[in-house]
């Protein structure tokens, strides 16, 4: 006995349940588009952050050849907290994705510069403390706090520079 379509439903099988009301094929295409856009955005974000990190690391590598005291406190502060982060931020801003907003650009560049400054400060301070021979236990709190503050400061400068450069580029 043949199947009666009127009784057993249409010949077109029902689609698998979807969260959205879009047709299955349409959903697949949307997902692909979304995914590729997401990948592109993440790739841009990674590039921006990597440029900031690389330039900052280069700058801090030069600074690490001498101690802040030898550089002179004022000069070192100007270089470590202004010059290097600014250069790194500008470099990151130049490669930043134009569509990203101010906050995102700031955050990405600040992350790269901040990590570089944090690493530089952490390693340098630990080495100095180790040479002192007083033990690092008393500096367990000091080193992370100081490194963190310096990283935030440098990251903020770098992030602001990156965001500012990107904004200028967008206006032009």
């Amino acid at each position: 006995m043949p199947i009666d379509d009127r009784e057993h439903g249409s010949e077109e099988p029902a689609p698998i349940a979807h969260a959205s009301h879009a047709a299955p094929n349409e959903h697949v295409h949307l997902s692909h588009r979304h995914t590729s856009r997401l990948e592109a955005a993440r790739s841009g974000e990674r590039a921006e952050r990597r440029v900031a990190l690389a330039v900052a690391c280069l700058g801090y590598l030069v600074l690490a050849t001498r101690n802040p005291r030898v550089w002179g406190q004022g000069l070192w502060a100007a270089l470590a907290l202004l010059a290097v982060p600014a250069v790194a931020g500008v470099a990151a801003g130049l490669v930043a994705e134009a569509r990203s907003d101010f906050g995102e650009r700031l955050r990405r560049a600040a992350g790269g510069v901040g990590w570089a400054m944090g690493g530089y400060a952490l390693v340098s301070m630990t080495m100095v403390r180790a040479r002192m021979g007083s033990g690092t236990s008393s500096a367990l709190l000091t080193i992370p706090v100081v490194a963190g503050v310096l990283a935030v400061a440098a990251g903020l400068v770098g992030g602001l520079c990156a965001a500012g450069v990107s904004r200028l580029a967008v206006k032009e």
Binding site: P68, R69, V128, R131, S138, L141, T142, V146
Partner: peptide, 24 residues
């Protein structure tokens, strides 16, 4: 030598006077 090491150290953390260990 020890004094220079401490000055190097204070060159990093000398501004953080809010930390007791820095004052010490």
């Amino acid at each position: 030598k020890e004094l220079e090491l401490r000055r190097d150290w204070l060159g990093w953390v000398g501004w953080a006077r809010f930390l007791p260990t820095v004052n010490a």
